[in-house]
Nucleic acid binder design. Structure first.
Length: 479
DNA sequence: CTATGGCACGGATT
DNA sequence: AATCCGTGCCATAG
């Protein structure tokens, strides 16, 4: 069944082999990099043009590579197991003010009627603020960048309001402990530390995590694990577990959506600023309906080779003709690569989603075992293609959670969540060996040593240190 | 003495 | 070819 009709706007000419490496490279780019790449290509190559996107005649949804949107033109009798996958222009539902890179005067940026980030935070902390602190808080909140970080030096704010820097610090501290935990921090590092501090009250934090962030932040972020292990005097394995913990429990950019699932059940901030590469939703929110997968395109139009340029090239100046020709070639190639990337993503997600439907809807425990290799066979592409499409990309689930796509291939997720469940409901601290037995009863055969590993991955203490520490109230104590 | 963590090895995955 | 992951063995903390 053809849900997606491709329209060829460029003729595909044989691609010079010297440029073949370029062909592949688009696939590895995440949405942000892709956006950048397209912008720069568009700016530097006169043969490329961006045409306004079409709209679906029935629902007015913006379209890229299709005539009618896949949702409207969907056959009624479509089997629910069949996901609907298509390339969608930059998604306004999920990423409102996307291109606010330059920190302009952001006072106008946020409208009042919808619950935007500044007011959302302000509401929470209003009661804790002294009257004279309110303008400062308001100033800080409206100055946040898209990541929810405060990139303006505190000193400047203090100077502006003629108050002591300490006072501004105090206000910032209050803000940092409000809901998108860490919001208003001056650096991602600071945000992480706040999150650690808060998290440590409701769960056990693996040792060295805080120290790693504090002392080896840049090493950690750049995945220079061996250096970090040297710095902290601990093993590589341990470092990797720390990295894993940080990756799945913390978020250096508070205003972006949740990374892992371990965040506290606070109300998620609705207009999340973090942009996933694909968005998965449920048609009409019907739990039995088909899944809708949108491969997000960073443009709201369609990129193509400018037809005028193409015809004009014949009449070019003799001295320019060489250059024009290469421009044309580059443009054609680029457009082709882009389509190739989109097609690859469509095929990939189509398959993943139909296999992992239960996981997407019901959660970690329902993840089916899946390797990139088997998937590659099923859709007849090379493994490396899958790898490239997967690494570094993220997907937003119907729940609003944003997860790395590689999680669909996680080999041990089921066992780990099962382990978590067991431990959460344990009456007395169970030893690793007992856990092995319990897991085996439930059909998971793992070695004792492995249980220990999973524990530390999930940040669960060994049976000693594990008493009866349940979550405390999350209240910030004013100094 | 028992439960865990570190290191390293081999097989699977990428 | 490089990396990841589960495991066995051994050291050590409790």
């Amino acid at each position: 069944m053809m849900l997606i009709r491709q329209i060829q706007t460029v003729d595909i000419r044989p691609v010079p082999t010297a440029h073949l490496t370029t062909t592949m490279s688009l696939l590895v780019l995440g949405i942000a990099e892709l956006h950048e790449k397209i912008e720069s290509e568009l700016a530097s190559n006169p043969a490329l043009e961006l045409v306004e996107g079409r709209f679906c005649p029935t629902c007015q949804r913006p379209l890229i590579d299709t005539n009618h949107c896949p949702i409207c033109s969907r056959p009624k009798n479509l089997d629910n197991a069949e996901p609907i996958v298509f390339v969608s222009p930059r998604d306004d539902f999920h990423a409102d003010s996307y291109d606010t890179e330059e920190g302009e005067d952001s006072f106008e940026e946020y409208s009042v009627d919808t619950e935007d980030l500044p007011t959302y935070v302000l509401k929470q902390i209003a009661s804790e603020l002294e009257i004279e602190d309110r303008p400062i808080a308001a100033y800080i909140l409206t100055s946040l960048d898209d990541d929810g970080l405060l990139r303006i030096p505190l000193i400047d704010i203090a100077a502006y309001y003629h108050v002591a820097p300490r006072q501004v610090e105090r206000v910032q501290k209050i803000i940092q402990y409000a809901d998108p935990l860490g919001v208003g921090s001056s650096t991602p590092q600071e945000a992480l530390l706040v999150q650690i501090d808060m998290l440590s009250q409701s769960m056990e934090i693996p040792t060295y995590v805080q120290q790693a962030i504090r002392e080896g932040y840049s090493l950690l972020m750049h995945q220079q694990y061996s250096e970090l292990s040297h710095l902290l005097g601990i093993s590589i394995t341990q470092v990797k577990e720390i990295a894993r913990f940080v990756g799945s429990n913390l978020n250096p950019y508070p205003a972006r959506a949740n990374w892992g699932e371990a965040r506290q059940p606070t109300t998620p901030y609705r207009g999340a600023y973090y942009r996933p590469d694909v968005v998965i939703s449920l048609l009409n929110n019907d739990p039995d309906g088909p899944l809708v997968v949108e491969i997000i395109s960073p443009l709201d139009g369609k990129l193509r080779v400018n037809p005028l340029f193409r015809s004009g090239v014949k009449e070019a100046n003799p001295d320019k003709i060489e250059e024009w020709h290469s421009d044309l070639e580059r443009a054609t190639l680029f457009v082709k690569c882009l389509q190739q990337r989109n097609q690859a993503m469509v095929h990939l997600m189509e398959k993943i989603v139909s296999i992992q439907r239960d996981f997407i809807l019901k959660g970690d425990a329902y993840l089916k075992p899946l390797t990139r290799a088997t998937l590659a066979q099923e859709i007849n592409v090379h493994e490396s293609t899958i790898s490239r499409s997967v690494t570094g990309k993220t997907a937003q689930l119907p729940s609003g959670k944003i997860i790395p796509i590689s999680k669909f291939f996680d080999r041990s997720l089921q066992v780990r969540t099962e382990l978590q469940k067991i431990i959460e409901s344990e009456g007395r601290p169970l030893t690793d060996i007992e856990l092995v037995e319990l897991l085996r009863e439930r059909g998971y055969k793992v070695a004792r040593r492995t249980v220990a590993k999973y524990r530390s991955m999930e940040g669960i203490m060994p049976s000693h240190g594990r008493k009866k520490i349940k979550s405390k109230k999350l209240v910030y104590q004013a100094p």
